[in-house]
Design a protein around this nucleic acid. Sequence first.
DNA 1: TATAAACAGGACTAATAAGGTCGTCATACT
DNA 2: AGTATGACGACCTTATTAGTCCTGTTTATA
Lengths: 141, 141
Amino acid sequence: MLLSQRADYAVRAMVYIAIQEKGKRVQIREAADKQEAPEPFLAKIVQALAVAGLVDTQRGAGGGIALARPAQDITLLQIVEAAEGPIALTRCTYEPGRCPRMERCAVHPVWERVQRVLETHLAAIRLSELAESQRKLTMAA
Amino acid sequence: MLLSQRADYAVRAMVYIAIQEKGKRVQIREAADKQEAPEPFLAKIVQALAVAGLVDTQRGAGGGIALARPAQDITLLQIVEAAEGPIALTRCTYEPGRCPRMERCAVHPVWERVQRVLETHLAAIRLSELAESQRKLTMAA
DNA sequence: TATAAACAGGACTAATAAGGTCGTCATACT
DNA sequence: AGTATGACGACCTTATTAGTCCTGTTTATA
């Protein structure tokens, strides 16, 4: 698999948070149940999302998780990178300038191009769109 | 990293084989030296390429590896899949119908779409193009 | 102010995959 | 026959992934 479970859980959890009524906080337990994710594992992922500034967490009774900004300002790429760390197609493209063959290898620029395509596509998808189609799906059922 | 070292070694080795004069076979040892890949590891990868029908191997003195068909009939996607197995973005898209949430999850179709984009881009790149630009690079140096 | 509800954070573990090695056998040219 | 070469399979080591668990700390509210 190209993306890990972390990324998948993270995205689904974000969608779940996004479809709540405004102002309502979600508990990790609840999100884990609904998304069929192991609770302690999801808790860790949520921490990473919080560090990345995508969600705002609040402790204590009545606490929970909420989006840190409007859903249309959050992209799929941001969620994936928050959960997984920066994405790199191969070791060559992990850090710019890290690959010793860069100057003499015809494959290098191709990996870079493909990676850019992937990032662009992920960045074009907004959490608000995902939330919208999730709402429709849920209503239909 | 989204793709493993196997894929990277495989692609570079294929380019190296493709830039040889017609009819000349490459020894694994030689390819490993040139591509800075561990020889026994590359040998395994070459086996996978042979099973996938991308290269033709010949044992014995004067043996070695050659392309099994013209370089313009081999795509980057074929090489990557031969080296890594079928690519799947997430566990959801690993096998069609394998994901239990498919019907009620708004994220699922997005993963499928992104995966298709990736596959399409990889399939659009031909080994012959890579070989051509590698030849130019080598001549320039 | 006690208490229960919630996340924070670190240490730990199990399973899997990646990356790599080695030895032996089969094959083909000379 | 001898030697060069890949095929094949067993094995090993390390890193990553996917989790678990325990002990906090914060916060609302009864």
